[in-house]
Amino acid sequence: MLFLELFKQVPVKILMVALLIILTVYLIRKSIKLFFDKTSILDEKREETLMHFAKQVTKVLGLVFFFIYVLSHYFDLAKLVTGSVVVAGALALILQHIIRDYIMGLTYLFERQIHHGDYVIINGDRQGKIEEISIRHLKIRQYDGYLYTVSYSNITELQNGNRGMRRVNESLILNYRQNPDDAFMVMEEVAQICNEKYGEYLLKDENGIPVESFKFNQITELNVDFRGNRYSISGLVKEADFVEASKKVRYELAMTAYKNDLMMAESLNTSH
């Protein structure tokens, strides 16, 4: 009897419900993981993305159910809900950004625009690899090591580089006094060197032929910031090799500019 009386006490009931919710969340996550392990309906990245999203959703739902249960012991929820239309409207207005985040998050997920581990550029200035996908925001690990968090409602532009290929596009800005003919010969040499040394990074077709080799694109922009002209080199590489390939091409450009005494563009504020 004492044992039964103990279970009727509100704090014990709340504790038991909390443990039950935790167990239910664990079992749901475990079931989803087992389902993905036993099937091959989706690709690995898609499965990993859905697992991360499921963890966030189950956590939020678990907390919501727990708070509803706790409040039900102190308030008449039926009367509270039916008699609080104005309050509910005000809350909806206050929480509109959060609701918008949830809707946009679901849109990004189910339209398969993003996956866990994708390399993305957000709003044109933040770039890195997606480390966490929640129901309200994205977290990307930038190359400087910082973890950048952005809510879905604040994303105005999203570029996803994980489509199997990326285009390396590196350039030198040379002084407008630099002879273009001399620069052309040097840049053509850099493109050839990159193809010889870093050909394994290039994206290839079914016959093993590069889809787009490293090539010199001549002058791609004149009078950049009133300092000089832009000479660029590009090539189509495998997405996984994009970062490394970009580093290699930049190195070759810097080394060639040094060896050939190319006149680099200088800031207008440079004093002599």
Rank of each mutant, 00 (worst) to 15 (best):
K79P: 03
N195P: 04
L147D: 02
L202M: 06
P11V: 10
H52Y: 10
V150W: 03
N169H: 09
S246W: 07
S153K: 12
N179Q: 09
N162H: 09
R250C: 04
I121G: 00
G89D: 13
N195A: 02
L236D: 02
L34G: 07
K13Y: 12
A88W: 13
L63Q: 02
A18H: 14
M255W: 11
G228H: 01
V249E: 14
L95K: 03
R227S: 05
K13N: 04
S171Y: 11
R136N: 11
F67H: 04
E47C: 12
I103E: 00
V17K: 15
Y26V: 12
L50Q: 10
T58K: 12
N207I: 06
G117W: 09
I209F: 05
N260C: 07
A245Q: 08
F53V: 05
R166L: 10
L93C: 08
V60K: 08
M165S: 12
M51S: 06
S72M: 06
V186L: 11
A78V: 09
K204R: 15
L262F: 08
I32L: 15
R163I: 14
V237G: 01
L106R: 05
F66I: 05
I122Y: 08
E44V: 15
R166Q: 13
N162M: 11
Q56E: 05
A245W: 15
A54M: 05
K215H: 12
A90L: 15
L174Q: 04
L71H: 08
R177F: 11
F184R: 14
V85E: 13
M104S: 01
K259M: 04
D182N: 00
I68C: 08
T39A: 07
Q127K: 03
R177P: 05
Y258A: 12
N175M: 04
L20A: 14
M104H: 00
T24K: 10
L106W: 07
A254M: 12
V81A: 10
R250Q: 13
A183Q: 01
L15V: 10
Y258D: 09
R250W: 01
E252M: 12
R167C: 05
H137G: 02
V168S: 06
L2T: 05
S271G: 04
K79C: 01
Q96D: 10
L50S: 10
Y258F: 13
Q96L: 12
